[in-house]
């Protein structure tokens, strides 16, 4: 069963999942819905099987750590991206664990010619989300990339390991509190 507009899809989904709501800020003027991380997999399943959103465009994440303005930019830029002395953590950086990650999923429906963005918050201390791999095989490498750069664990992923950074780089470089430790190529 397909719907004619994305509003119909939203109204139908809201009956099944009451925690879904329109996000305050739209990303690129696409319909942007914020969902809870627990129901993310089931919402994607419903969207794929009943509403024709059968193509996964992208899986990515954003680290909301520290003060951010409405456009999403840090008001206090992280000073310790490449620190000469990694043991010194600058005092103005927020406390570890503060803030949250946003998992961003872009789905496309070819029958409706419509893109849809799902934003889901996960906890920053122990970030976990359910893998979309059983629904979309294309989520495989994208979730590995998010795992590599942000450290978000996708439960149910068949092969969750580093994909981009070499093995000797420890930590997750796109986290705002990432402090680079000197490796054998930094001297």
């Amino acid at each position: 069963m397909t719907h004619h507009t994305v509003e119909d899809v939203f109204a139908k989904l809201q009956k099944i999942f009451p925690d879904i709501k329109e996000s305050e800020e739209k990303i690129k003027n696409y319909p942007t819905w914020s969902v809870s991380s627990g129901s993310l997999f089931k919402i994607c399943e419903t969207l794929k099987k009943e509403s024709g959103f059968e193509y996964l465009d992208m899986v990515t994440a954003v680290d909301r750590h520290g003060k951010v303005n409405s456009a999403g930019y840090l008001t206090e830029p992280n000073p310790c991206v490449y620190s000469q002395n990694p043991s010194v953590v600058p005092s103005q950086s927020p406390a570890p664990g503060a803030g949250f990650f946003e998992i961003i999923i872009i789905l496309t429906s070819f029958s409706m010619n419509q893109k849809l963005i799902l934003v889901s918050r996960v906890d920053r201390t122990n970030p976990e989300a359910e893998s979309l791999y059983p629904l979309f095989k294309s989520a495989d490498w994208q979730e590995r990339e998010v795992f590599d750069l942000f450290g978000i664990k996708f439960t149910g992923h068949p092969n969750l390991k580093k994909i981009l950074t070499p093995d000797f780089i420890k930590g997750h470089p796109l986290r705002k509190d990432y402090v680079h430790k000197k490796d054998k190529f930094d001297y």
């Binding site: 950074t165 780089i169 470089p173 930094d186």
Partner: peptide, 13 residues
């Protein structure tokens, strides 16, 4: 020059 993933000059290797 301050990247975590780039060798800063091929003369290092």
């Amino acid at each position: 020059y301050d990247s975590y993933s780039v060798v800063k000059g091929v003369d290092k290797i």
